[in-house]
Nucleic acid binder design. Structure first.
Lengths: 102, 102
DNA sequence: TTGACATATAACCGTATGGTTATATGATTA
DNA sequence: TAATCATATAACCATACGGTTATATGTCAA
């Protein structure tokens, strides 16, 4: 067997990486972006419209999310499409969502 | 069917709550505390020893984690035991851990 | 080439937050 | 009651980080 049931035997480094992933997801605006993108790739402009945030702000968050490996980035002409790469991120959101009221 | 596959139809408020939960888990020291506690309730002193952090620092994180509903707090004499309350938190850590190298 | 459009980046600001030291609160024992 | 131990809190500092404005970079059309 290879799966561990609980959190243990995690190195300082692993703890740091896991925490970083959570921290990346720990911003409402970034979750809003994930929501705007999880149905399929969207351009920055689309996402700006969907979120109602500033273009600069959205761009910064997108860079961060892509840099973290959560989003894909595809350039097409002068448009840039961001799409979901890490499905686990979506799953995590769903899990947390479910326990909110359940 | 009632389960949603992807993140959508989330209100601003829900996004905020989900983000807050992630943010709470987004600190290495707090994950270290979860690790120290996930096998069973531990006193503050135990946790201080296990983490190697300051008593004041640990106490602050414990308050935060208990306040967020992730840990339980039980007083026994002059000792205070903190234990796992939110098993989902552990599960989330495991899921993220698994995708680190896989 | 010039201008319009789409995205990224730089510089800056205010605030949130983790860590520290010192002290307070509360419980136990002598 | 006094002293000791366990935990919590207060005050403070430094830094990280989200948001904003302005500008740079790059691509397309005229």
């Amino acid at each position: 067997m290879s799966k561990k049931i609980s959190v243990h035997a995690l190195t300082e480094d692993e703890l740091g990486q896991i925490a970083r992933r959570f921290k990346t997801l720990g911003e409402p605006m970034r979750l809003k972006i994930l929501q705007a993108v999880c149905k399929g790739p969207r351009t920055v402009g689309d996402i700006v419209t969907a979120t109602g945030a500033t273009q600069a702000n959205v761009s910064k968050h997108l860079s961060l999310l892509a840099g973290a490996g959560i989003l894909t980035r595809t350039k097409d002409g002068q448009c840039v499409y961001y799409g979901m790469k890490d499905q686990l991120a979506v799953k995590l959101c769903t899990l947390v969502r479910e326990q909110l009221t359940d």
